[in-house]
């Protein structure tokens, strides 16, 4: 605990993005999130290539065994892929749309999951502990850096960076708009942003069109922004809680050895429990990111039908309202 204290007794210091030791190597600021993104991409690709090799049908010489997926990682990937498609995406999007967008959505899920899980490995703390135990500090330490602090080459949770999540959400934004334009055409898409055909053609309500257009354009941005902020907040919140728990012992340093030991024990057990919850959250948030992207995409695929239904009932809803009914509408159609 004193090591944590020595390495910077600030829970957010372990959670938020900061400069990596690569900054000194490249002469420019390289945040840890960038390092994690690159490594996470490599790990995701390597793991999924490995899993795909196990899931694929083997040679005929293997007999019936060639259809069996062996290995825990491959089986986990298979279960996730199959479960996400059959239990989540197909019911929400319909078979045609789900198959079209499956590669994008699965890539999103596994990439975000990899980044989330990488954040569960205390690489940053390990480097600080090694440094505190008198290990050799990496050479090329930045001028002006505090000698008490270790150079951190790798660590942290990339998805705890809002900037990273914005980069990921940009893909979701593009996917949603691509699906909109593919379904409605550019004219239809603009017409949709202006509130729909009936509203545009109604000259008596011309003044409403700019307002609707503005709201819809804001909605286009808000949807992926909500994805980014949700992921960021969950990752930061969970990791901050864990770091805070682990610092309780250090906070009690003035109360004596017995108090520090007792509080550290309780805090440690609590942190382990929270770690399990964070493990779940890592999966959950990756799923939520992917699932909401799928929902937003599916809304655009059936937008006209929603408008027709809504207009038939003599009322007009915004896109968010239509979105709320989208899964049911997809089932219905």
């Amino acid at each position: 605990m004193t090591l944590l204290l020595a390495s910077g007794a600030d829970p957010l210091g372990h959670v938020l993005d900061k400069s990596s030791a690569f900054s000194g190597v490249f002469g420019t600021d390289i945040p840890l999130s960038v390092v994690s993104l690159v490594i996470g991409g490599v790990i995701a690709l390597a793991g999924l290539f490995f899993a795909a090799g196990r899931i694929r049908t083997g040679p005929e010489s293997q007999g019936h065994r060639r259809y069996v997926t062996e290995g825990r990682l491959a089986q986990l990937v298979e279960v996730l892929v199959d479960g996400l498609y059959t239990q989540m995406l197909e019911p929400v999007m319909g078979a045609r749309l789900a198959k079209t967008w499956l590669p994008f959505l699965l890539s999103t899920f596994f990439f975000v999951l990899t980044l989330n899980l990488m954040g569960m490995v205390p690489l940053m703390d390990m480097q600080e502990i090694l440094h505190a135990f008198g290990g050799h500090a990496p050479e090329g330490e930045q001028a002006g850096a505090d000698a008490k602090h270790a150079l951190i080459w790798i660590g942290g949770t990339a998805t705890a960076s809002l900037s990273v999540n914005i980069g990921l959400a940009a893909w979701a934004f593009l996917a949603i708009q691509w699906q909109s334009i593919r379904e409605l055409g550019v004219g239809g898409w603009l017409e949709h942003l202006a509130g729909g055909k009936e509203l545009v053609q109604n000259k008596g309500l011309w003044f409403v069109v700019p307002i609707i257009f503005l709201v819809e354009v804001l909605g286009l941005v808000i949807k992926p922004a909500a994805l980014a902020i949700r992921l960021f907040a969950n990752m930061v919140g969970g990791h901050t809680l864990m770091a805070t728990l682990m610092l309780f012992g250090a906070m009690a340093a003035t109360l004596g050895v017995a108090a520090v030991s007792g509080i550290s024990l309780v805090a440690g057990v609590a942190a382990v429990a929270i770690s399990f919850m964070e493990l779940f959250v890592a999966f959950l948030q990756a799923f939520v990111f992917m699932f909401l992207t799928a929902v937003f995409i599916s809304q655009m695929a059936h937008h006209d039908e929603h408008h027709d239904e809504e207009h038939g009932h003599g009322e007009h809803h915004g896109s968010e309202s239509a979105a709320a009914h989208s899964p049911g509408a997809v089932h219905g159609h």
């Binding site: 600030d10 938020l16 945040p31 991409g41 960076s161 900037s163 990273v164 980069g167 990921l168």
Partner: peptide, 25 residues
């Protein structure tokens, strides 16, 4: 936090890296 960025500030490099790396992936 020591050396840590503002949690809600936008940094171009991580965002662009995330966009590019995910694109490659």
């Amino acid at each position: 936090a020591d050396g840590a960025a503002n949690p809600v500030s936008f940094q171009a490099l991580p965002a662009i890296t995330a966009f590019v790396v995910f694109g490659v992936v």
